[in-house]
Amino acid sequence: MNLAQPTGGSTPVIETRDLRMRYGSTEVLRGVDLRVHRGEVVALLGPNGAGKTTTIEILEGFRRRSAGEVRVLGTDPDHGNEAWRARLGVVLQSWRDHGRWRVRELLDHLGRFYAPYRTAERPRPYPVDELVDLVGLRDRADAVVARLSGGQRRRLDVAVGLVGRPDLLFLDEPTVGFDPQARHEFHDVVHRLSELEDTAILLTTHDLDEAEKLSDRILILAGGTIAAEGTPAELATRVAGTAEVRYRRGGEQRTHAVTDATAYVRELFARHGDAITDLEVRRARLEDVYLALVREFESGQRTEAFHELKELAV
């Protein structure tokens, strides 16, 4: 896989090579290669059970990998010390902690741990007032955490993730269970974040739309590897160049993704003539390919869509 280096050869904040994870006899990750650069917003997109959370927990240093090379901010997460930890922000899928604390009180408290790790370019912790503004919780700054709505709670989690002004922020499935309004507000927060100085964000999602909206680059995780990667526009263009040809031959339904549909169909008729029925040609959309991939992944088979994406990725 050919990885572009948008920041001109600087060391990536995340780099994995042949990352593998096995639970018992099940291999969840079968060689994941990924890179995230400084200040970049990257979405790790994949269906449920694809290993997104496993990947992110390995990167956070919460889970030991089975094999492979991993560097996060230049350090192996299995051996990350507290100074390394101070440069990371972690937002898990579901925190319910500190329900009795007040928003401002909690941010102030957790921020104190980061003070010893401040540098000239990264004053730590992040001032609490700026932080509550950034995540849109100014009106709720004195509220008890347990009384926040789901969306507010998640924005508080992001604020906690940012309180140490991290070089790298992990967001695991940030909008699961949100109503459209909460989702929209959350996306606004992430957009504001991406304008922040030099904070790279790795977020996981199973929602293509969300990945397209939020990220500079999408990595599709399926079948235990990165099946495709690129900017949303790149992925869309690559897919737009292909089409899906469906037809029936000898009573059997067939589907093929091809780059030159016209030539393919001409060839098809030349070879099989009248045996071809129910012909249908459709321009592929990224969503179609992704959904097909998810369906196949969930039914336990990884076939055409997977290879199709693989080809696209090359």
């Binding site: 898990l92 902690d97 957790l110 741990f113 140490g164």
Partner: peptide, 20 residues
Amino acid sequence: MDREDGTLLRAKATPNGVLG
């Protein structure tokens, strides 16, 4: 209970947080 609701994990995600 702090393990169940994630308070402890939060401490773990914070530098020297478990000590605190």
